[in-house]
């Protein structure tokens, strides 16, 4: 995993053996680019790259690609998230080229939440490809320099390709085989679902490591600080595929009034510090949802600041 395939800073950091740090920024529900720029400016010095979500929870937002371009023009490295829900293979390949034309060097391939969760529940979904096939597509375009249709691409996209993994979704027994499939499809880095159940995560990554999978990809542990005990309960009970142990809820509930948010940050920092030492963890993906201003604190207190110059 030492040769560089792209100009991605994230790829360089990970391949140099540093613990990588990414965060995310959700584009606004409007056309004001300042919202993206502000979020970007807040966290740019504390991360190696910033994910830009693609109409998350199927709510219509500013396009991920456009928001990535805003960040890129500020000199911030984006990770373009792309879901297969809204675009067929023509549009996906075209957007990949569009991203590459701005030298956006990272992509995260996802299937996307079902449209029934969003504001267009009556809309069609596409799912021409699934997330694994999208990973294959980007790798094919980059490595073979060809479109899916077989024609040559002039200036193929140089994109570092990632996929998501959820160590906690059902059924557990296929969590590692599923990771293996994504790696076989060409996923060079993996960003996981938010981790709260450390024991289960450790079990997952151990099985993955035993299969040699952690040598084949960079696994970035997903971290989301809890703002309140209400959020923790919501995540536990309402968000599919989320595993929030009762200890977390108890600890947040036990915090002094007005200090739950700080407790949430503390838990997040402690988890990062613990997982940092874990074999197979190559980095952290900090998703502070509408709470980007806390990312610097989390990164600093976790001992991940300053970010390496590579």
């Amino acid at each position: 995993m030492s040769d560089l395939n792209t100009a991605s800073n994230l790829e360089k950091v990970l391949k140099a053996g540093h613990i990588g740090v990414t965060s995310e920024c959700g584009p606004p529900r409007g056309s004001d680019a300042d919202e993206v720029k502000k979020k970007g400016a807040l966290i740019r010095d504390y991360v190696d790259a910033i994910n830009v979500t693609d109409n998350q929870t199927a709510m219509t937002r500013m396009s991920s690609l456009a928001a990535c371009v805003h960040l890129k023009l500020m000199g911030i490295e984006p990770v373009l998230q792309m879901v297969t829900r809204d675009r067929n293979r023509v549009a996906l390949q075209s957007d990949i080229l569009g991203a590459a034309s701005f030298d956006i060097p990272n992509m995260l391939c996802l299937s996307g939440d079902h449209q029934s969760f969003g504001d267009c529940a009556q809309g069609q979904n596409v799912h021409d490809l699934d997330s694994m096939q999208l990973v294959q597509t980007v790798r094919y375009m980059r490595d073979e320099g060809k479109f899916l249709g077989g024609d040559d691409i002039k200036r193929p996209p140089k994109i570092f390709v990632g996929a998501a993994a959820n160590p906690f979704a059902d059924p557990f027994e296929i969590r590692v085989p599923r990771l293996a499939k994504k790696i076989a499809c060409g996923a060079e880095f993996i960003q996981t679902q938010c981790i709260y159940n450390l024991d289960k995560f450790k079990e997952w990554i151990k099985i993955a490591a035993d299969r040699g999978l952690t040598e084949k990809t960079f696994i970035m542990a997903g971290m989301t600080p809890m703002k309140s005990v209400g959020m923790a309960k919501y995540m536990k009970n309402r968000v599919p595929g989320m595993d929030v142990p009762d200890e977390i809820i108890k600890r947040l509930a036990g915090a002094e009034k007005g200090k739950q948010a700080q407790e949430g940050i503390d838990i997040c920092v402690e988890h990062i510090q613990e997982l940092k030492e874990l074999n197979g963890v190559s980095g952290f993906h900090i998703m502070a949802i509408e709470w980007e201003e806390k990312v610097p604190e989390i990164v600093e207190r976790s001992g991940l600041y300053p970010r390496p110059e590579v």
């Binding site: 096939q133 998501a164 979704a169 059902d170 296929i174 599919p240 595929g241």
Partner: peptide, 10 residues
């Protein structure tokens, strides 16, 4: 999804 399940399976 032809290579499933997606992350939403609970």
């Amino acid at each position: 999804v032809l290579n499933g399940p997606c992350g939403g399976s609970t």
